[in-house]
Simulated assay, not measured.
Amino acid sequence: MPNETIVHVVDDDLAVRQSLSFLLASEGLPVRLHESASAFLETVAAPSGCIVTDVRMPGMDGIEFLRHLRERGFGIPVIVMTGHADVPMAVEAMKEGALDFIEKPFDDDLFLAAVRSALQVRERLAERDAQAAELQARLDGLSERERQVLEGLVAGKANKVIGYDLDISPRTVEIYRANVMTKMQAGSLSELVRMALQAGVDSGSQAPAP
């Protein structure tokens, strides 16, 4: 299976780690075990899949663990396991970015459903990141003038106005616009504008290129 499906179990209790490892493996889900949050952070440079962690652990607890994950820019879904008395901590964990929390003792099916949901979230995030990277690559392929024309289109300006702003003819704007459509692989103006907005293109004024 691809690395994206790895389930990282972070818990100081060996019995819990072994039990969850057996359960996940029985469902065909690759699992990696970590005895503490610190051990995870020391050994995993680019985590994929999802994390299942106890909220209350010696040393670095689940809340601090989540903060470290966020500081490092790890956009990996995290499921927090908690005892009944620790529900307030679990709620705090969700405020810190945890995707979900489940109370111990939990039903196996409930646990597996939460893990699969987290993996699906990760898959969607990966697809979104790939799409964003592809859009950025297309934008990077535009010339300075093409980028200026695109910004004018995003601002809702007509070819005539864009031409005036850039000191070029409306016909030349049409040529640049066609080039932009081709390079951005947009089938319509609305699709082009949607792509540009998704990529964060600034719709500010266009100054004439030198």
Rank of each mutant, 00 (worst) to 15 (best):
P2G: 03
N3V: 03
N3C: 05
E4C: 04
H8Q: 14
V9T: 02
V9C: 11
V10N: 08
D12T: 00
D13S: 08
D13Q: 14
D13T: 01
A15T: 09
A15Y: 04
V16W: 05
V16G: 03
S21E: 15
S21N: 13
L23F: 09
L24Q: 00
L24N: 01
A25Y: 05
S26R: 15
S26W: 02
G28L: 02
G28P: 02
L29A: 01
P30V: 01
V31Y: 00
A39I: 01
A39H: 12
T43E: 14
V44W: 04
V44K: 08
V52M: 11
T53A: 15
T53P: 12
R56E: 11
M57S: 11
P58I: 06
M60L: 10
M60G: 05
G62E: 11
I63D: 04
R67P: 04
L69C: 13
R70L: 11
R72F: 05
F74S: 11
G75R: 14
G75V: 04
P77N: 12
V78M: 13
I79H: 01
G83H: 06
V87E: 15
P88M: 11
A90E: 10
A93Q: 12
G97C: 14
G97Q: 14
A98G: 01
A98N: 04
L99F: 12
E103G: 08
E103A: 13
F106C: 15
F106D: 10
D107I: 08
F111A: 03
A113C: 05
A114I: 10
A114M: 10
R116I: 13
V121R: 04
E123I: 09
R124C: 10
L125Y: 03
E127W: 07
E127K: 13
E127S: 13
R128V: 13
A130W: 09
Q131D: 09
E134L: 13
D140W: 01
D140H: 01
R145Q: 15
Q148Y: 08
Q148F: 08
V149E: 00
G152F: 02
V154W: 04
V154C: 06
A155M: 03
V161L: 03
S169K: 09
R171I: 00
E174F: 05
Y176A: 07
R177P: 00
R177V: 08
A178I: 05
N179D: 13
V180L: 01
M181C: 03
M184Y: 03
A186R: 00
G187Y: 06
G187S: 12
G187W: 05
S188D: 01
L189K: 14
E191Q: 15
E191A: 15
L192M: 10
A196S: 10
A196F: 02
A196I: 10
L197E: 15
Q198T: 06
G200P: 06
G200A: 06
V201Q: 07
S203R: 13
G204T: 01
G204E: 03
G204A: 02
S205T: 10
P208F: 09
P210Y: 07
P210G: 06
